[in-house]
């Protein structure tokens, strides 16, 4: 894997749910250390694209490579074989995901939530894992909530635990699936602050978001998806700033901005 290869390489990705072809040939590069925001109307395929990267959804055609490794299929000895459970687990360990609905483990404390992957997947000892977990929780601003159960935390706090859980695993790339959509407005800021810091520290990220201002501020590149394809791609300035060339993008942004008022 040469230093110039993008960390995540998506080529010609297709995916159907039954008769509905959600992804109709997506090409995308995510260079290491960059932040790519994926925006688009619902049904445009953006969440599906993200979920294909860590194989929460299987993809029908095309390829996704993370750090040079094809995620969904084993291509050695010339044949395209779908990967088995164990292989997938190994690949997923290096890809972090933060969910819209947090998906914290309700029976574990914040620290234990972060520790689980460290102990069972990274093989750390209990003390070592606990120390690392607490360190990450402090970094996301939850030093006083280490022993709290998810039910005792606000939405913003839960999401920050979710972020800590994902990044503690030291992933190569972090996937963020509309992580502020389920939050009350006043809690969104604390979560975005954490993401900004991660970006500043060089974490490679792919985020699906409705927060246009945030996307513009933190991304290296913005991708607008429409009808299962990448319709517009460019720097935030190009996509948001100059009068948008693409008609559907113009319409989409107009609708979003109207709502933000």
């Amino acid at each position: 894997m040469s230093g110039n290869d993008p960390l995540v390489k998506v080529r010609g990705l297709t995916k159907s749910f039954g008769a509905n072809q959600v992804l109709q040939g997506v090409d995308l590069d995510v260079p290491k250390g960059s932040v790519v925001s994926i925006i688009g109307a619902s049904g445009s395929g953006k969440t599906t694209l993200l979920r294909c990267v860590n194989l929460l959804e299987t993809y029908d055609g095309g390829s996704i490579e993370v750090d040079g490794v094809e995620v969904g299929y084993d291509l050695s000895d010339g044949r395209r074989r779908p990967r088995g459970e164990r292989e997938l687990a190994g690949i997923r360990a290096d890809i972090g995901m933060v969910f819209q609905l947090f998906n914290l483990f309700p029976h574990l404390t914040a620290t234990e939530n972060v520790m689980l992957g460290l102990r069972k997947v990274r093989g750390m000892g209990k003390a070592e894992a606990r120390a690392a977990a607490e360190q990450w929780l402090v970094r996301v601003g939850l030093a006083d909530k280490l022993e709290s159960l998810p039910i005792e935390l606000s939405g913003g706090q839960q999401q920050r635990v979710g972020i800590a859980r994902a990044v503690a695993m030291n992933p190569k790339v972090l996937l963020l699936d509309e992580i502020t959509s389920a939050l009350d407005p006043e809690l969104v800021g604390e979560v975005l602050k954490v993401v900004r810091e991660l970006a500043r520290d060089g974490m490679t990220m792919m985020l699906v978001t409705h927060e246009m201002t945030f996307a513009r501020d933190v991304s290296s590149r913005v991708v607008f998806m429409d009808g299962g394809r990448v319709a517009v791609e460019g720097s935030p300035k190009d996509v948001f700033g100059a009068p948008a060339q693409h008609e559907r993008l113009r319409g989409f942004l107009a609708r979003i901005e109207l709502r933000d008022i």
Partner: peptide, 12 residues
């Protein structure tokens, strides 16, 4: 979502 969270941190 619980299964997905488990998968996302690499649990078998």
């Amino acid at each position: 979502g619980q299964h997905e969270a488990g998968k996302s941190i690499g649990l078998t």
